[in-house]
Amino acid sequence: MEHMPEFPGGQAALLKYIATSIKYPVICVETGITGKVFISFVVNEKGEVVEAKVARSPDANLSAEALRVVNNMPQWTPGRQRDKAVRVAYTIPVNFVLQ
């Protein structure tokens, strides 16, 4: 891969977007459920996030929230290979921690 897809503003902006977009499910707060949800998705040739799915998760409610946030991500700069936009698979961890 010559150029990996990039979230607008880079890696730091991606982490900030996730942190500010997550709404901790109330049921998980009440029951003290925490953990990492791993979401796999593809950044397509247009930079759109498609085919998002849960790779691993401690709880279905956390999965649903992490998927919602990933599916609402703004458009990325697509990955490029030999000057052509290409599909690139990605997996990101979404960390749920109770304060």
Rank of each mutant, 00 (worst) to 15 (best):
R82A: 14
E30S: 12
N72D: 15
P74T: 07
Q99K: 14
R68N: 09
I92M: 09
L14W: 12
C28E: 11
R82W: 14
A60C: 06
T91E: 12
A60L: 13
I22W: 06
I22M: 08
A12K: 15
Q81R: 12
V88R: 15
E45Q: 12
P78W: 03
R87H: 12
V86R: 04
N72H: 12
V69C: 03
G10P: 10
Y17K: 02
A64L: 12
V37Y: 02
Q11L: 14
E48Y: 10
A52E: 09
F96M: 02
M1A: 13
M73E: 05
L14T: 05
F41T: 02
A55P: 04
A19H: 13
F96P: 00
A19E: 15
A64H: 08
R87A: 11
R80T: 13
P74H: 06
E45H: 09
R56G: 06
L15H: 15
F7Q: 01
T34A: 09
F7E: 02
T77D: 14
K23C: 06
I39A: 00
G35F: 06
V86Q: 05
V69S: 03
T20H: 10
S57K: 09
S40A: 11
I18F: 07
T34E: 15
E2G: 10
G35H: 07
A66D: 05
G32C: 03
S57L: 04
E48T: 11
F96N: 00
V94N: 01
I27C: 09
R80F: 12
K16A: 10
V49L: 01
P93Y: 02
S21A: 08
M4W: 13
K46Q: 12
A52H: 05
D83Q: 14
M73T: 07
I22F: 08
V37G: 00
L62F: 00
C28F: 07
A89M: 14
V50W: 06
D59I: 03
Y90G: 01
E65K: 00
A66T: 07
V97H: 11
A89F: 10
Y17S: 01
L67V: 02
P5C: 13
S40C: 10
L67C: 04
T20E: 15
V69Q: 04
